[in-house]
């Protein structure tokens, strides 16, 4: 038991850092994922993650694999895509899905172009898929800071976010806070994706954000409980994914996301609101 579960983390510094970083990432990104899902913006994370690429790529080409420039670059590109698309959706007749598709496609093409100017496909792979086992202390500090910012902002904006999801028209009639809340939320999404891409790459960092949230939806019916459960699912995925990757010598990022995927599929079937309970078990019912 000890050999299998504890030893990899106890004996290797890189495993400890990977575990610590990915747990922090779950704590921060999973609640954001819950709100993305509830706002039917599940694919927004995906689009924004693609949008981060050119910023990270430019920084990578200029400074090499350095966490700070790549983070700042990714942040700028991600914010341009998320806030630009959000603004087009808010202030024109176009809906967010279309404006987001337009912005991220432009951004993605730009990113691939930048990388191909000087890089090889190995560079591209590194940016796209990240390396959780190579997290250094500056990366961990970055992830921890983003985690704190996210949790504090979510606490402050919680009621506004719930109101904006539940009845946006009402919120607009009593307060002007709806638009700032929406943009603050988009910013949090970008921040968390940027925090994730060093560890998991731009593409897979969305996985840790969305899969635990999507799974938690099948178990509980309260936003707060859903966020807590999503974080728990995230933790479980990180531990399982890292252990599997260690023992079977598999890449760690995909292992973590696949572990989250397994939890999701299991939830679809076995959740209290999942397929089996709602379709195949005949319930007794109360008279009222």
């Amino acid at each position: 038991m000890y050999e299998f579960f504890i030893a990899p983390f106890a004996e290797f510094g890189f495993m400890q850092r990977a575990l610590f970083g990915s747990l922090l990432l779950s704590l921060s990104a999973c609640p954001v994922g819950v709100f993305l899902m509830l706002r039917r913006m599940s694919l927004t994370g995906d689009a924004v993650a693609h949008g981060i690429l050119p910023g990270a790529a430019v920084a990578y080409l200029m400074f090499g694999l350095e966490i700070v420039p790549m983070t700042i670059g990714g942040l700028i590109a991600g914010l341009v895509v998320a806030l630009g698309a959000g603004a087009v959706a808010r202030f024109t007749l176009q809906k967010e899905d279309a404006s987001l598709a337009a912005f991220y496609l432009i951004s993605l093409a730009l990113g691939v172009l930048v990388i191909s100017i000087r890089g090889s496909s190995v560079d591209l792979m590194q940016v796209l898929f990240g390396t959780v086992l190579a997290l250094d202390s500056s990366a961990l500090i970055l992830i921890a800071s983003i985690c704190v910012i996210t949790l504090v902002s979510l606490t402050i904006f919680w009621r506004g976010l719930v109101a904006e999801c539940l009845d946006p028209l009402f919120l607009r009639s009593v307060s002007r806070i709806g638009t700032p809340v929406h943009f603050a939320f988009l910013t949090l999404t970008v921040l968390n994706l940027v925090a994730g891409f060093q560890a998991l790459g731009t593409l897979l960092s969305v996985g840790l954000m969305m899969l635990p949230a999507a799974g938690a939806r099948f178990w509980v019916n309260r936003v707060s409980a859903m966020s807590a459960l999503a974080v728990l699912f995230g933790f479980a995925s990180c531990v399982t994914g890292l252990l599997v990757s260690y023992h079977a010598a598999l890449p760690s990022g995909p292992s973590i996301i696949l572990a989250a995927g397994v939890i999701y599929i299991a939830s679809v079937f076995c959740g209290t609101r999942g397929l089996i309970r709602t379709h195949f078990i005949t319930h007794r019912h109360r008279t009222a």
């Binding site: 509830l38 999801c165 539940l166 009845d167 009402f170 919120l171 009593v174 936003v223």
Partner: peptide
């Protein structure tokens, strides 16, 4: 036509308490 998201995991309490926003 309200824009209330009926599938949002909220209770009646949550919906009605929005009235306290002002």
């Amino acid at each position: 036509q309200s824009e209330i998201d009926r599938s949002f995991p909220a209770r009646v309490f949550d919906l009605v308490s929005l009235g306290l926003w002002p």
